[in-house]
Amino acid sequence: MQVQAKDYIREIQIRLIVQPVIERLLSRFGSVAVIEARARQLLMERGKIPRYIGGNLINLLVQLQVDLRGSDFSDLVVQPDFSR
């Protein structure tokens, strides 16, 4: 999701991209709790995942309405993927 995009662009991105991804993840993993656990595990492997994935995972958790209070992402480098 583009953070600096207008609200209606973000809403379209959520509807056309994020929601289908969430539906597939729920179909595969069965619950938000399992998805959250796997996402947090990936976020802990900061040096092993591409930098843009951290932002994607956080956006996914936000859309799943996961409570991120108390989470520390201060050392997570969030960088867009300009390789496309």
Rank of each mutant, 00 (worst) to 15 (best):
M1C: 05
Q2E: 13
Q2T: 14
V3G: 04
K6V: 01
D7N: 10
Y8A: 11
Q13A: 08
Q13P: 01
Q13R: 08
Q13S: 10
Q13K: 05
Q13W: 04
Q13D: 13
I14T: 09
R15H: 10
R15S: 13
V18C: 00
Q19N: 08
P20A: 05
V21P: 02
V21K: 15
R24P: 03
L25K: 04
L26A: 05
S27E: 14
F29G: 10
F29I: 08
F29R: 08
F29C: 08
G30D: 02
G30V: 10
S31Y: 13
S31M: 05
S31H: 04
A33T: 12
V34W: 00
V34D: 11
E36M: 02
E36A: 12
E36F: 02
A37M: 12
A37F: 02
A37Q: 12
A37C: 05
R38P: 01
R38V: 12
A39W: 00
A39C: 14
Q41T: 09
Q41W: 10
L42W: 11
L42V: 10
E45R: 14
E45K: 11
R46S: 14
R46V: 01
R46N: 04
R46F: 02
R46K: 15
K48G: 07
K48W: 05
I49Q: 05
P50K: 10
I53E: 14
I53M: 15
G54A: 06
G55I: 00
L57P: 00
N59T: 04
L60G: 04
L60N: 04
L61F: 07
Q63R: 05
L64W: 00
L64P: 00
V66E: 01
D67F: 03
D67M: 05
D67S: 10
L68N: 06
L68S: 06
R69E: 13
R69S: 14
R69H: 12
R69W: 07
G70Q: 04
G70F: 06
S71G: 00
S71N: 11
S71V: 02
S71F: 14
D72E: 10
D72T: 12
F73W: 14
L76R: 02
L76H: 10
V78Q: 15
D81S: 06
D81V: 06
D81M: 07
D81C: 11
F82I: 08
R84G: 09
R84K: 12
